Simulated scan of single mutants.
Amino acid sequence: AIADVPWFVALGGPLDREARRRGQTVYLPDRRIPLHPEVLSEGVASLLPDQDTPAFVWVLDLDGIGEIRGIGLERSRVRSVQKLAYEEVQAELDRGEGHPMMVLLQEIGALRARQESVRGGASLNVPEQEVVEEGERLHLGWRRPHPIGDANAQISLMTGMAAAQLMLEHGAGILRTMPPAQAQAMDRFRRQAEALRIPWPTGQAYGEFLRSLDWQDPAHLALLNHATSLFRGASYAAFTSADEIPEDTVQAAIAAPYAHATAPLRRLVDRFVLLVCHAHVQGRAPDPDLLAALGEIPEAMRGSGARAGELERAALDLVEAAALATWQGETFAATVIDRREGKQAEGAAPTRVEVQLTDPPVTAWVPMDADLGAVVRVRLESVDTAARHAEFVAADGVRS
Protein backbone atom coordinates (compact mmCIF):
# COMPACT_ATOMS: atom_id res chain seq x y z
CA ALA A 1 0.00 0.00 0.00
CA ILE A 2 1.39 3.37 -1.11
CA ALA A 3 0.07 6.76 0.02
CA ASP A 4 -2.50 8.11 -2.45
CA VAL A 5 -1.08 11.63 -2.70
CA PRO A 6 -3.16 12.52 -5.81
CA TRP A 7 -6.26 12.16 -3.61
CA PHE A 8 -5.10 15.33 -1.86
CA VAL A 9 -3.00 17.05 -4.56
CA ALA A 10 -5.00 17.95 -7.66
CA LEU A 11 -3.14 17.93 -10.96
CA GLY A 12 -2.41 21.52 -11.96
CA GLY A 13 -3.51 22.95 -8.60
CA PRO A 14 -1.42 25.13 -6.27
CA LEU A 15 -0.02 22.18 -4.29
CA ASP A 16 0.95 20.44 -7.52
CA ARG A 17 2.70 23.55 -8.84
CA GLU A 18 4.66 24.03 -5.63
CA ALA A 19 5.57 20.33 -5.48
CA ARG A 20 6.94 20.53 -9.03
CA ARG A 21 9.10 23.45 -7.94
CA ARG A 22 10.44 21.57 -4.91
CA GLY A 23 10.85 18.16 -6.54
CA GLN A 24 11.58 16.20 -3.38
CA THR A 25 11.88 16.39 0.38
CA VAL A 26 15.29 17.63 1.50
CA TYR A 27 16.67 16.10 4.71
CA LEU A 28 18.95 18.06 7.06
CA PRO A 29 20.40 17.00 10.42
CA ASP A 30 17.81 18.87 12.49
CA ARG A 31 14.88 19.36 10.10
CA ARG A 32 13.42 18.50 6.74
CA ILE A 33 12.17 20.76 3.95
CA PRO A 34 9.07 18.83 2.87
CA LEU A 35 7.77 18.27 -0.63
CA HIS A 36 4.21 18.62 0.68
CA PRO A 37 2.64 20.41 3.65
CA GLU A 38 3.29 18.45 6.82
CA VAL A 39 -0.44 18.15 7.47
CA LEU A 40 -0.32 15.74 4.51
CA SER A 41 3.14 14.14 4.71
CA GLU A 42 3.02 13.57 8.46
CA GLY A 43 -0.74 13.44 8.87
CA VAL A 44 -3.78 12.58 6.81
CA ALA A 45 -1.92 11.32 3.69
CA SER A 46 0.55 9.15 5.59
CA LEU A 47 -0.17 5.48 6.32
CA LEU A 48 -0.08 6.01 10.08
CA PRO A 49 -1.42 3.42 12.52
CA ASP A 50 -5.06 3.60 13.51
CA GLN A 51 -6.29 5.92 10.78
CA ASP A 52 -8.06 5.18 7.51
CA THR A 53 -5.92 6.52 4.68
CA PRO A 54 -6.42 6.64 0.88
CA ALA A 55 -3.84 4.42 -0.79
CA PHE A 56 -2.75 2.83 -4.02
CA VAL A 57 -2.68 -0.90 -3.34
CA TRP A 58 -0.37 -3.04 -5.48
CA VAL A 59 -1.20 -6.72 -5.82
CA LEU A 60 1.80 -8.66 -7.14
CA ASP A 61 1.46 -12.39 -7.76
CA LEU A 62 4.71 -14.36 -7.51
CA ASP A 63 5.63 -17.88 -8.46
CA GLY A 64 7.70 -20.26 -6.37
CA ILE A 65 11.03 -18.68 -7.34
CA GLY A 66 9.90 -15.10 -6.79
CA GLU A 67 9.19 -14.00 -10.36
CA ILE A 68 6.24 -11.67 -10.98
CA ARG A 69 3.34 -13.47 -12.69
CA GLY A 70 0.56 -10.93 -12.19
CA ILE A 71 0.28 -7.18 -11.56
CA GLY A 72 -2.72 -5.40 -10.06
CA LEU A 73 -3.14 -1.83 -8.82
CA GLU A 74 -6.24 -0.28 -7.27
CA ARG A 75 -7.19 2.73 -5.19
CA SER A 76 -8.62 1.94 -1.79
CA ARG A 77 -8.50 2.92 1.87
CA VAL A 78 -6.21 1.11 4.26
CA ARG A 79 -5.79 1.06 8.01
CA SER A 80 -2.32 0.35 9.36
CA VAL A 81 -2.48 -1.43 12.69
CA GLN A 82 1.10 -1.08 13.91
CA LYS A 83 4.27 0.91 13.25
CA LEU A 84 7.30 -1.39 13.16
CA ALA A 85 11.03 -0.69 13.51
CA TYR A 86 13.66 -2.72 11.65
CA GLU A 87 15.70 -3.32 14.82
CA GLU A 88 12.76 -4.77 16.73
CA VAL A 89 11.54 -6.93 13.85
CA GLN A 90 15.04 -8.26 13.19
CA ALA A 91 15.56 -9.09 16.85
CA GLU A 92 12.28 -11.04 16.92
CA LEU A 93 13.25 -12.96 13.78
CA ASP A 94 16.69 -13.74 15.21
CA ARG A 95 15.00 -15.17 18.31
CA GLY A 96 12.69 -17.29 16.18
CA GLU A 97 9.68 -15.24 17.33
CA GLY A 98 8.98 -13.28 14.16
CA HIS A 99 5.43 -12.50 13.07
CA PRO A 100 4.33 -14.78 10.18
CA MET A 101 4.09 -11.75 7.89
CA MET A 102 7.70 -10.83 8.65
CA VAL A 103 8.81 -14.42 8.15
CA LEU A 104 7.13 -14.34 4.73
CA LEU A 105 8.71 -10.97 3.95
CA GLN A 106 12.09 -12.49 4.76
CA GLU A 107 11.39 -15.44 2.46
CA ILE A 108 10.24 -13.25 -0.43
CA GLY A 109 13.20 -10.92 0.07
CA ALA A 110 15.61 -13.84 -0.26
CA LEU A 111 13.85 -15.03 -3.45
CA ARG A 112 13.96 -11.55 -4.96
CA ALA A 113 17.64 -11.14 -4.03
CA ARG A 114 18.29 -14.39 -5.88
CA GLN A 115 16.37 -13.04 -8.88
CA GLU A 116 18.54 -9.92 -8.74
CA SER A 117 21.64 -12.08 -8.84
CA VAL A 118 20.33 -14.08 -11.80
CA ARG A 119 19.55 -10.84 -13.70
CA GLY A 120 23.03 -9.53 -13.02
CA GLY A 121 21.87 -6.73 -10.73
CA ALA A 122 24.04 -5.29 -8.01
CA SER A 123 23.66 -3.72 -4.56
CA LEU A 124 26.29 -1.96 -2.48
CA ASN A 125 26.52 -3.35 1.06
CA VAL A 126 27.98 -0.19 2.60
CA PRO A 127 26.78 1.40 5.86
CA GLU A 128 25.64 4.99 5.51
CA GLN A 129 26.93 7.85 7.61
CA GLU A 130 24.11 9.52 9.51
CA VAL A 131 23.65 12.46 11.82
CA VAL A 132 22.03 11.47 15.11
CA GLU A 133 20.14 14.05 17.16
CA GLU A 134 20.15 13.58 20.94
CA GLY A 135 18.45 16.48 22.67
CA GLU A 136 20.25 19.62 21.53
CA ARG A 137 23.40 17.75 20.46
CA LEU A 138 24.23 16.15 17.10
CA HIS A 139 26.78 13.42 16.51
CA LEU A 140 27.79 11.06 13.72
CA GLY A 141 27.05 7.37 13.53
CA TRP A 142 26.61 4.47 11.12
CA ARG A 143 23.27 3.42 9.71
CA ARG A 144 23.87 -0.29 9.41
CA PRO A 145 21.40 -2.28 7.31
CA HIS A 146 19.44 -5.17 8.79
CA PRO A 147 18.57 -8.28 6.75
CA ILE A 148 14.84 -7.55 7.09
CA GLY A 149 15.52 -4.06 5.78
CA ASP A 150 17.14 -5.58 2.71
CA ALA A 151 14.08 -7.78 2.26
CA ASN A 152 11.80 -4.77 2.48
CA ALA A 153 13.98 -2.95 -0.07
CA GLN A 154 13.50 -5.90 -2.43
CA ILE A 155 9.72 -5.41 -2.19
CA SER A 156 10.14 -1.76 -3.20
CA LEU A 157 12.43 -2.73 -6.08
CA MET A 158 9.91 -5.34 -7.22
CA THR A 159 7.13 -2.74 -7.18
CA GLY A 160 9.23 -0.33 -9.23
CA MET A 161 9.98 -3.05 -11.74
CA ALA A 162 6.27 -3.89 -12.00
CA ALA A 163 5.48 -0.21 -12.60
CA ALA A 164 8.09 -0.02 -15.36
CA GLN A 165 6.70 -3.16 -16.98
CA LEU A 166 3.20 -1.67 -17.06
CA MET A 167 4.35 1.64 -18.52
CA LEU A 168 6.46 -0.01 -21.22
CA GLU A 169 3.64 -2.36 -22.20
CA HIS A 170 1.18 0.55 -22.55
CA GLY A 171 3.51 3.17 -24.00
CA ALA A 172 3.38 5.97 -21.42
CA GLY A 173 5.26 6.72 -18.21
CA ILE A 174 8.54 7.76 -16.59
CA LEU A 175 11.43 5.35 -16.08
CA ARG A 176 14.40 5.59 -13.75
CA THR A 177 17.40 4.77 -15.94
CA MET A 178 21.12 4.19 -15.48
CA PRO A 179 23.65 3.27 -18.17
CA PRO A 180 25.82 0.19 -17.68
CA ALA A 181 29.23 0.66 -16.11
CA GLN A 182 31.82 1.62 -18.70
CA ALA A 183 34.29 -1.08 -19.64
CA GLN A 184 37.16 1.16 -18.51
CA ALA A 185 35.59 1.61 -15.06
CA MET A 186 34.95 -2.12 -14.76
CA ASP A 187 38.54 -2.96 -15.74
CA ARG A 188 39.85 -0.46 -13.20
CA PHE A 189 37.62 -1.93 -10.51
CA ARG A 190 38.87 -5.43 -11.28
CA ARG A 191 42.49 -4.20 -11.02
CA GLN A 192 41.67 -2.63 -7.66
CA ALA A 193 40.30 -5.96 -6.44
CA GLU A 194 43.55 -7.62 -7.52
CA ALA A 195 45.64 -4.94 -5.82
CA LEU A 196 43.70 -5.49 -2.60
CA ARG A 197 44.15 -9.27 -2.94
CA ILE A 198 40.41 -9.93 -3.01
CA PRO A 199 39.68 -12.90 -5.29
CA TRP A 200 37.10 -12.23 -8.02
CA PRO A 201 36.39 -15.58 -9.69
CA THR A 202 36.32 -15.57 -13.48
CA GLY A 203 32.75 -15.62 -14.71
CA GLN A 204 31.26 -14.25 -11.48
CA ALA A 205 28.99 -11.26 -12.17
CA TYR A 206 30.06 -8.06 -10.46
CA GLY A 207 26.74 -7.84 -8.60
CA GLU A 208 27.27 -11.24 -7.02
CA PHE A 209 30.87 -10.28 -6.25
CA LEU A 210 29.77 -7.07 -4.51
CA ARG A 211 27.30 -9.01 -2.36
CA SER A 212 30.17 -11.18 -1.14
CA LEU A 213 32.10 -8.20 0.29
CA ASP A 214 32.00 -7.35 3.99
CA TRP A 215 32.44 -3.63 4.80
CA GLN A 216 33.89 -4.54 8.22
CA ASP A 217 36.99 -5.92 6.46
CA PRO A 218 39.34 -2.94 5.73
CA ALA A 219 40.26 -4.19 2.25
CA HIS A 220 36.62 -4.88 1.38
CA LEU A 221 35.63 -1.42 2.66
CA ALA A 222 38.18 0.20 0.36
CA LEU A 223 36.90 -1.76 -2.62
CA LEU A 224 33.24 -1.02 -1.86
CA ASN A 225 34.03 2.69 -1.85
CA HIS A 226 35.55 2.34 -5.32
CA ALA A 227 32.50 0.42 -6.53
CA THR A 228 30.50 3.65 -6.48
CA SER A 229 32.23 4.54 -9.77
CA LEU A 230 30.19 1.75 -11.39
CA PHE A 231 26.86 3.38 -10.42
CA ARG A 232 26.81 6.69 -12.28
CA GLY A 233 24.58 8.48 -14.75
CA ALA A 234 21.17 7.80 -13.18
CA SER A 235 18.39 9.81 -14.81
CA TYR A 236 14.69 9.84 -15.68
CA ALA A 237 13.11 9.23 -19.08
CA ALA A 238 9.50 10.25 -19.82
CA PHE A 239 7.47 9.03 -22.80
CA THR A 240 3.83 9.40 -23.85
CA SER A 241 3.66 6.95 -26.75
CA ALA A 242 5.34 3.75 -27.89
CA ASP A 243 7.35 5.79 -30.41
CA GLU A 244 8.93 7.81 -27.59
CA ILE A 245 10.14 4.88 -25.48
CA PRO A 246 13.89 5.38 -24.94
CA GLU A 247 16.28 3.02 -26.66
CA ASP A 248 17.83 1.89 -23.38
CA THR A 249 15.14 1.27 -20.78
CA VAL A 250 17.26 -0.66 -18.26
CA GLN A 251 18.43 0.64 -14.89
CA ALA A 252 21.86 -1.03 -14.95
CA ALA A 253 22.29 -1.52 -11.19
CA ILE A 254 18.95 -3.33 -11.04
CA ALA A 255 19.51 -4.98 -14.44
CA ALA A 256 15.89 -4.40 -15.45
CA PRO A 257 13.53 -1.56 -16.38
CA TYR A 258 12.60 0.29 -13.20
CA ALA A 259 10.54 3.25 -11.99
CA HIS A 260 10.19 5.17 -8.75
CA ALA A 261 6.73 4.29 -7.47
CA THR A 262 6.81 3.79 -3.70
CA ALA A 263 7.54 7.20 -2.12
CA PRO A 264 5.12 9.84 -3.47
CA LEU A 265 5.14 11.79 -0.21
CA ARG A 266 8.84 12.59 -0.52
CA ARG A 267 9.50 12.36 -4.29
CA LEU A 268 7.55 14.16 -7.03
CA VAL A 269 7.98 11.57 -9.78
CA ASP A 270 6.30 8.74 -7.85
CA ARG A 271 2.92 10.49 -7.87
CA PHE A 272 2.91 10.67 -11.66
CA VAL A 273 4.08 7.08 -12.04
CA LEU A 274 1.26 5.86 -9.79
CA LEU A 275 -1.39 7.77 -11.72
CA VAL A 276 -0.13 6.51 -15.08
CA CYS A 277 0.12 2.91 -13.87
CA HIS A 278 -3.37 3.01 -12.37
CA ALA A 279 -4.79 4.17 -15.71
CA HIS A 280 -2.93 1.38 -17.52
CA VAL A 281 -4.25 -1.30 -15.14
CA GLN A 282 -7.78 0.07 -15.46
CA GLY A 283 -7.53 -0.28 -19.24
CA ARG A 284 -7.97 3.42 -20.04
CA ALA A 285 -5.71 6.09 -21.48
CA PRO A 286 -4.05 8.39 -18.92
CA ASP A 287 -5.63 11.83 -18.61
CA PRO A 288 -4.34 14.24 -21.32
CA ASP A 289 -3.25 16.75 -18.65
CA LEU A 290 -1.30 14.00 -16.93
CA LEU A 291 0.46 13.00 -20.16
CA ALA A 292 1.24 16.65 -20.91
CA ALA A 293 2.92 17.01 -17.51
CA LEU A 294 5.17 13.94 -17.82
CA GLY A 295 7.80 15.75 -19.85
CA GLU A 296 8.40 18.31 -17.08
CA ILE A 297 9.11 15.79 -14.35
CA PRO A 298 12.62 14.54 -15.32
CA GLU A 299 14.05 18.07 -15.29
CA ALA A 300 12.28 18.87 -12.00
CA MET A 301 13.83 15.76 -10.44
CA ARG A 302 17.28 16.47 -11.88
CA GLY A 303 17.33 20.03 -10.58
CA SER A 304 15.97 19.20 -7.15
CA GLY A 305 18.30 16.22 -6.85
CA ALA A 306 21.33 18.41 -7.49
CA ARG A 307 20.18 21.02 -4.96
CA ALA A 308 19.35 18.42 -2.33
CA GLY A 309 22.68 16.63 -2.79
CA GLU A 310 24.65 19.86 -2.44
CA LEU A 311 22.76 20.92 0.67
CA GLU A 312 23.00 17.50 2.33
CA ARG A 313 26.77 17.30 1.66
CA ALA A 314 27.27 20.77 3.15
CA ALA A 315 25.24 19.79 6.22
CA LEU A 316 27.27 16.62 6.71
CA ASP A 317 30.54 18.54 6.33
CA LEU A 318 29.38 21.03 8.97
CA VAL A 319 28.34 18.33 11.44
CA GLU A 320 31.56 16.39 10.78
CA ALA A 321 33.63 19.46 11.60
CA ALA A 322 31.59 20.24 14.72
CA ALA A 323 31.79 16.63 15.90
CA LEU A 324 35.55 16.52 15.35
CA ALA A 325 36.28 19.82 17.10
CA THR A 326 36.63 18.14 20.51
CA TRP A 327 39.05 15.53 19.07
CA GLN A 328 41.72 17.96 17.85
CA GLY A 329 45.20 16.53 18.42
CA GLU A 330 43.94 12.94 18.78
CA THR A 331 45.26 10.00 16.74
CA PHE A 332 42.98 7.53 14.94
CA ALA A 333 43.26 4.25 13.06
CA ALA A 334 41.87 4.56 9.53
CA THR A 335 41.50 2.48 6.36
CA VAL A 336 42.92 3.75 3.06
CA ILE A 337 40.08 3.78 0.51
CA ASP A 338 41.64 5.86 -2.30
CA ARG A 339 45.03 7.19 -3.44
CA ARG A 340 46.08 10.07 -5.68
CA GLU A 341 49.61 10.26 -7.02
CA GLY A 342 51.37 13.58 -6.44
CA LYS A 343 53.07 15.63 -9.14
CA GLN A 344 56.83 16.00 -9.45
CA ALA A 345 56.74 19.71 -10.29
CA GLU A 346 57.75 22.21 -7.61
CA GLY A 347 54.76 23.44 -5.63
CA ALA A 348 52.51 20.67 -6.95
CA ALA A 349 50.18 18.73 -4.68
CA PRO A 350 51.83 15.80 -2.86
CA THR A 351 50.62 12.23 -2.96
CA ARG A 352 47.46 11.90 -0.86
CA VAL A 353 45.30 9.07 0.38
CA GLU A 354 41.65 9.14 1.34
CA VAL A 355 41.02 7.38 4.64
CA GLN A 356 37.88 6.12 6.35
CA LEU A 357 37.69 6.44 10.12
CA THR A 358 35.30 4.12 11.93
CA ASP A 359 34.75 6.12 15.10
CA PRO A 360 33.93 8.88 14.41
CA PRO A 361 32.65 7.74 10.98
CA VAL A 362 34.28 10.32 8.69
CA THR A 363 36.47 10.29 5.59
CA ALA A 364 39.39 12.62 4.93
CA TRP A 365 42.24 13.22 2.49
CA VAL A 366 45.67 13.04 4.12
CA PRO A 367 49.05 14.03 2.59
CA MET A 368 50.84 10.68 2.88
CA ASP A 369 51.30 7.50 0.88
CA ALA A 370 49.90 4.04 1.60
CA ASP A 371 48.36 1.13 -0.26
CA LEU A 372 44.61 0.72 -0.73
CA GLY A 373 43.13 -1.24 2.13
CA ALA A 374 46.04 -0.51 4.46
CA VAL A 375 45.24 0.50 8.03
CA VAL A 376 47.18 3.64 8.95
CA ARG A 377 47.30 6.08 11.85
CA VAL A 378 46.36 9.70 11.30
CA ARG A 379 46.24 12.72 13.60
CA LEU A 380 43.56 15.38 13.60
CA GLU A 381 45.69 18.48 13.16
CA SER A 382 43.08 21.23 13.07
CA VAL A 383 39.35 21.91 12.69
CA ASP A 384 37.69 24.97 11.15
CA THR A 385 33.98 24.64 11.86
CA ALA A 386 33.02 27.81 10.00
CA ALA A 387 34.76 26.54 6.86
CA ARG A 388 33.37 23.02 7.43
CA HIS A 389 36.89 21.58 7.18
CA ALA A 390 39.05 19.25 9.25
CA GLU A 391 42.74 18.66 8.50
CA PHE A 392 44.33 15.27 9.16
CA VAL A 393 48.05 14.43 8.87
CA ALA A 394 50.03 11.21 9.08
CA ALA A 395 50.72 10.26 12.69
CA ASP A 396 54.52 10.03 12.61
CA GLY A 397 54.22 8.24 9.29
CA VAL A 398 53.43 5.01 11.15
CA ARG A 399 51.07 2.40 9.74
CA SER A 400 48.99 0.18 11.96
Rank of each mutant, 00 (worst) to 15 (best):
P218A: 13
D338W: 01
A237R: 13
W215E: 02
F189M: 12
R197I: 07
A1Q: 00
S123H: 15
A256I: 05
E88R: 08
V250G: 08
P246K: 00
A386Y: 12
E74V: 15
G72L: 00
V59E: 03
P199E: 13
D248E: 08
A386D: 13
M178D: 11
T262Q: 02
T358M: 13
G96R: 02
E354F: 12
Y27R: 00
L157T: 09
R232N: 02
R137Y: 15
L196N: 00
E116N: 14
W200S: 05
A195S: 12
P360L: 09
P49N: 02
W142G: 07
M178T: 13
T228N: 11
S117N: 15
V9M: 09
T358K: 12
A395N: 04
A219W: 02
E134C: 09
W58V: 04
R271G: 14
R352I: 08
N152W: 14
A387C: 03
I337K: 02
P264E: 06
A252Q: 01
R232H: 03
L47G: 05
A370Y: 12
E346T: 15
H220L: 08
I254V: 13
T331K: 03
D338R: 07
R112W: 04
I174C: 06
E128K: 14
G66Y: 07
G149A: 06
P367K: 02
G373Q: 04
L140K: 07
L223S: 03
Q344N: 15
L84G: 08
G160T: 05
H36N: 00
R79P: 03
R232I: 06
D94C: 01
A55G: 01
G70W: 06
A151G: 13
V398S: 12
I297K: 01
A374W: 07
L372M: 10
